[in-house]
C-alpha cells in the first residue's frame, strides 16, 4: 500500500531587503514559523538559504503539503517560486526535522550557481533531485559535526 507520502522541492528568490544581519533575522523568523506550523501537521523537511536563494524540501501527506505550500506561496518575502519536484516517495529524507535549516557551514559558497540555466520539465525534475541530494548531504554533514 502506498503511504501517500509526498515530497515537494522548490526554490525561490529572496525579496527580503536589509543588511545581512536583518536578512538573517528574517530567515530565522521564517524558520521558526515553519517549525511551529509543520510540527502541528507532521510535515518535515529542510530549508536552505544561500546566495539570495531559498530552497526547501517539504515531506508529508499530500493534503498537508498542499496547505503548507499554499501558505508559503502567499509569503511576500520571496518570489519567482519554481517547483522542481512534487511526487510520491517511499520515505522521508528529513524524518526528524519539522524544518531543518541547513547550509550555515557553507555560507561562503554559492551552492545553486547552476540554477537559472536549467529549463524545461525534465531539467526541473533533475534539479529537484539534485537540490534534495545537496540538502541531504549538507544536513548529514552538519549533523555529524554537531555530534
Amino acid at each position: 500500500m502506498t503511504s501517500g507520502l509526498h515530497r515537494l522541492v522548490y526554490y525561490s528568490r529572496n525579496r527580503i531587503t536589509g543588511t545581512p544581519a536583518e536578512v538573517a533575522a528574517e530567515v530565522d523568523a521564517i524558520l521558526a514559523s515553519a517549525q511551529r506550523n509543520n510540527s502541528l501537521i507532521d510535515v518535515t523537511g529542510a530549508l536552505i538559504f544561500n546566495a539570495g536563494i531559498f530552497a526547501q524540501v517539504l515531506e508529508g501527506a499530500r493534503r498537508d503539503i498542499e496547505v503548507t505550500f499554499e501558505r508559503i506561496q502567499r509569503d511576500e518575502r520571496h518570489g519567482d517560486v519554481q517547483v522542481l519536484a512534487f511526487e510520491e516517495v517511499e520515505s522521508r529524507g528529513f524524518p526528524s526535522w519539522s524544518m531543518a535549516f541547513v547550509g550555515r557551514s557553507r555560507e561562503g559558497q554559492n551552492l545553486f550557481a547552476h540554477i537559472g540555466e536549467a529549463t524545461g520539465f525534465e531539467a526541473k525534475r533533475m534539479e529537484g533531485g539534485r537540490i534534495f541530494r545537496i540538502m541531504c548531504a549538507i544536513a548529514m554533514e552538519e549533523e555529524a559535526r554537531v555530534v
Binding site: 509526498h6 515537494l8 522548490y10 499530500r62 503539503i65 498542499e66 505550500f69 499554499e70 506561496q73 502567499r74 511576500e76 518570489g79 517560486v81 519554481q82 517547483v83 512534487f86
Partner: peptide, 17 residues
C-alpha cells in the same frame, strides 16, 4: 502588481501542479 505576482505563482491542487 501583488495580484499578478501572487496569482501567477504555482498552485498545487489535489496533487496537480
Amino acid at each position: 502588481k501583488r495580484l499578478v505576482d501572487l496569482l501567477g505563482r504555482s498552485y498545487i491542487v489535489e496533487g496537480h501542479l
